[in-house]
Lab assay of single mutants.
Amino acid sequence: ATNIVSKVKWYNSTKNFGFIEQDNGGKDVFVHKSAVDAAGLHSLEEGQDVIFDLEEKQGKAYAVNLRIK
């Protein structure tokens, strides 16, 4: 899926990962520091509106092509 609009559930800049809620009630989506860095960001804030693409690797959903709404 591409261009999903949602909100950051939480992000831990010390552990370099977090999760984004899915508005459709699906499972929370993992977001890694590499996606945050690629977006030119230093961190994410809880409740922040984001747009991302969903990529599945080894049966897990990852946020990629992250951008701020």
Rank of each mutant, 00 (worst) to 15 (best):
R67G: 04
Y11R: 00
G18V: 02
K57G: 09
V8N: 00
N24A: 11
F30A: 02
G59S: 05
H32F: 05
I20F: 09
A35R: 04
G59W: 04
S13P: 14
H42Y: 12
F19Y: 06
L66R: 00
A1P: 10
S6V: 05
H32N: 05
D37F: 14
E55G: 06
L54T: 06
S43M: 12
N24L: 10
D23V: 15
S6Q: 06
K15C: 11
E56Q: 12
E21H: 14
V36L: 15
A35C: 05
G47W: 05
Q58A: 13
I4D: 03
I68Q: 08
A61E: 10
V29W: 08
K57I: 11
I51S: 06
N65K: 07
T2E: 10
I4M: 10
E45F: 15
I51N: 03
V50Y: 03
I4N: 08
A63E: 03
G26V: 09
K27Y: 10
I51P: 00
R67Q: 08
V64L: 04
H32S: 07
T2H: 12
G26E: 10
V31Q: 00
V31C: 03
A61M: 14
D53F: 04
K60S: 07
Q22E: 07
Y62L: 05
Y62D: 03
A1C: 13
L41V: 09
G18Y: 03
L66G: 00
E46M: 14
V50C: 04
T14G: 10
K57L: 10
Q48N: 06
T2A: 10
A35M: 08
V50E: 00
D53R: 04
K9H: 05
Y62C: 08
K7F: 06
F19S: 02
K33R: 11
A35S: 09
D49Q: 14
F52K: 01
V50L: 10
S6T: 04
L66A: 01
S43G: 13
I4P: 05
G26P: 08
T14V: 13
N12H: 09
D37L: 15
A63D: 03
K7C: 06
G18E: 00
V8E: 01
E46A: 15
D53C: 05
I68G: 06
F17Q: 02
V64T: 11
K27Q: 11
S13I: 12
V8K: 00
Q48S: 08
L66E: 02
G26Q: 11
G40A: 06
E46Y: 11
T14Y: 12
K33L: 05
A38H: 08
G47A: 06
F19D: 00
Q22F: 14
G18Q: 01
V36Q: 00
D23Y: 15
E45Q: 13
I20N: 00
Q22W: 15
S34Q: 10
D23M: 15
Q22D: 11
A1F: 13
I4F: 07
S34F: 11
K33H: 07
G25Y: 08
N24Q: 10
